[in-house]
């Protein structure tokens, strides 16, 4: 593992700069110095710098920062979950949505959109809660289907994930066809978008994702061993089945928490781990934290583009991540010195 401290510090500084930039830009642009001062004021109560108008303060603190923070934690969660699933499944095309999370979240969100109820709990509407429960429930279901005795072989997990996803997608299509009036809202939800409405939702989702990230960080050595195959992981002293369940549960928690406030933003969880791997290598001890930071940076920028390009209307976030991410990934694939061989 080469220079982890320098790599992570550099990414941390880059993330801070990205947050400042994304908060500053918009239909009304706000000087970065004001942003820093407003943040300091709200956190410590100390008034430095200024003066700024009340409108500026509202835009920064009530509108833009929650949204930037939302994009950041969703990006970090999806990228980290991508690292977990790619490592555990030993599969470069694995992403956080592979084992049924997306299907479960989408189906549950669709049902929530169809229900006449509008109120939810914990300051959320019903849709994010449904998405979170759906994503987590789907992974647990897939794990149960794949389990034979005390073992859940990787191949069976992948197949069970595929089967469950297909089933849930079919159920969702059926619901959408029989309820055409909600069709557009469902489609928009599946294309993704940061909908953190103020700080309240973040106060719940933030700690969930933070806990998931910490949990993931404690398992990076195990994840490295899993890359050598389950037998070799066992020979290296890992309790394979227990760890596998913990890795799956953590990945599902991160994904579920992310899709609850973002819908199904694609590409981040697949592509960010690959980009980071091409730059710093495949060692999960560095790859996981570096991917989480990079995922945050990537999604904050993508969200900035999503709200700037057709301002004042917005482009779905999932469209932006694919448009920006794919060409950059292809460029890296072609020029990198670190050969991409499996």
């Amino acid at each position: 593992m080469r220079k982890p401290f320098i790599t992570l510090s550099a990414l941390g500084i880059l993330l801070a700069a990205t947050v400042l930039l994304a908060t500053s830009l918009g239909t009304v642009s706000i000087p970065m110095g004001h942003i820093a001062s407003i943040v300091v004021k709200h956190i410590t109560g100390v008034n430095i710098g200024g003066p700024w108008s009340d409108t500026q303060e509202t835009i920064v603190w009530q509108l833009r920062l929650p949204r930037v923070a939302g994009a950041g934690i969703v990006g970090a969660a999806l990228a980290a979950a991508g690292v977990l699933f790619q490592g555990l499944l030993r599969n470069p095309i694995a992403d956080p949505y592979l084992l049924g999370t997306s299907g479960g979240a989408a189906l549950a969100a669709t049902i929530a959109l169809l229900l006449p109820v509008t109120s939810g709990a914990f300051g959320f509407t019903l849709v994010p809660i449904a998405a979170f429960v759906g994503a987590l429930g789907a992974v647990l279901l897939v794990y149960q289907i794949a389990r034979v005795g005390s073992r859940a072989p990787i191949t069976t997990l992948l197949l069970a994930g595929f089967a469950a996803s297909s089933l849930m997608a079919a159920a969702m299509s059926f619901l959408m066809l029989t309820n055409q009036n909600t069709l557009q809202r469902v489609v928009l939800w599946t294309m993704g978008g940061i909908s953190a409405s103020g700080w309240d939702t973040l106060k719940v989702i933030g700690p969930l994702i933070l806990a998931g990230l910490l949990c993931a960080l404690t398992m990076t050595t195990d994840l490295n061993a899993f890359l050598l195959g389950e037998d070799q992981a066992a020979a290296l002293g890992i309790s394979v089945e227990g760890r596998k369940f913990m890795l799956l549960a953590t990945g599902a928690l991160l994904t579920g928490a992310a899709v609850a406030i973002s819908g199904l933003v694609g590409f981040v969880g697949l592509i960010v781990p690959h980009i980071v791997r091409l730059l710093i290598g495949p060692d999960n001890r560095l790859l996981l934290p570096a991917s989480a930071l990079s995922g945050a940076i990537f999604l904050i920028l993508a969200d900035l583009i999503a709200r700037m390009v057709l301002s004042p209307s917005e482009v779905p976030l999932g469209v932006v991540t694919a448009f920006v991410g794919a060409p950059f990934f292809i460029y890296l694939l072609r020029r990198t010195k670190r050969e991409y061989t499996f």
Partner: peptide, 27 residues
């Protein structure tokens, strides 16, 4: 015995080891 205690004394060299992603030999 704990799995990792066993692993500190007994190593297994499989017939063929495959690794996804580009690990260097030192890694």
């Amino acid at each position: 015995l704990r799995r990792r205690e066993v692993a500190q004394r007994i190593a297994f060299v499989p017939q063929e080891l495959t690794v996804p992603f580009a690990f260097t030999v030192s890694e």
